[in-house]
Amino acid sequence: MVTVDDVRRIARDLPRSEEHLIRDRVKFRVGKIVYVAFSRDETIMGFGFPKEERDALIAANPQTFHLPRESDLRFNWVQAHLSHLDEDEMPELVLEAWRMTVPKKVWSAYLPRLA
C-alpha cells in the first residue's frame, strides 16, 4: 500500500516542490499550484492529471482511480485509493503531476537524472 511517506520521498527532491499542511491535509505544491493532495485520513491521494486522459485511466482501473468531487471536475485532477494504488505506478503519477506545474526548462533539466 502506498503511504504519504512514499510520496514524500519522491516529492521532496523535486525542484520547486514544497510540502504544506493545509486544513489538516498534506499537500504538495509548486508555488500556489497543488499537484498532489491527501484526504485527512490519508486514504485517498488526489493528483494532477490531464482532463482528456482521466476517463481512460479510471476505466482501466476503477477500483483504484475515481473522479474528484463535482466541484473539482473543472481541474486537471484524479483521485486514487491508496490501498489499491500500485507502488510501482505511484512515482510516475507524482512526477507527471509535478511536471504539469513547472516550466518545461525545470522538468526537462530534472527528468534526465532519473534515467
Rank of each mutant, 00 (worst) to 15 (best):
V7F: 03
T43R: 14
A56Y: 00
R99D: 09
A60C: 05
F65D: 00
P103D: 12
A11L: 12
W77M: 14
R16K: 14
A115D: 15
P112R: 12
K51G: 05
P91D: 14
V102T: 08
S83F: 06
E53V: 09
L82H: 04
I44Q: 09
D55T: 02
V4L: 10
G31Y: 02
V2L: 09
L95W: 06
E96C: 06
R40L: 06
G46H: 08
E52P: 03
S108G: 05
H66R: 07
Y110A: 13
Q79G: 07
L14V: 11
D86N: 11
A59D: 02
L73H: 10
L82F: 04
A11E: 14
R69N: 13
A37R: 08
A115R: 14
V30T: 10
F49I: 01
F49R: 01
I22H: 08
D86W: 09
K27C: 12
V2G: 03
R12D: 13
E19L: 13
D72A: 12
V94T: 05
Q63D: 14
L82I: 08
G31R: 02
R25M: 12
R16S: 15
A59M: 01
Q63I: 10
V7H: 03
M90P: 02
L57V: 01
W107H: 14
R9G: 07
R25W: 05
R74D: 13
R16E: 15
M90A: 13
F47C: 00
A59W: 00
F65Q: 01
L21T: 12
I58M: 01
D88E: 15
P112A: 13
V78L: 07
P15G: 12
E19V: 11
E19M: 14
I22K: 11
L14I: 13
N76D: 15
F65T: 01
R113M: 12
F47P: 00
Y35D: 11
Q79V: 06
I22W: 06
R29E: 05
H20S: 15
D13S: 09
V26Q: 04
P103M: 09
L67S: 03
P15F: 08
F47L: 01
L82T: 06
P50D: 07
A80Q: 04
V94C: 03
A60H: 06
M1E: 11
E92W: 07
A11K: 10
G48P: 02
R12S: 10
R29M: 04
S71M: 09
L14R: 07
Q63H: 06
T101K: 11
V26E: 05
P50N: 10
S83N: 10
S83A: 11
F75A: 12
K105G: 06
W98M: 02
L73E: 13
L21D: 11
W77Q: 08
F28G: 05
R99F: 06
A56I: 00
Y35T: 08
H20Y: 10
S108C: 08
L111K: 08
R29Q: 06
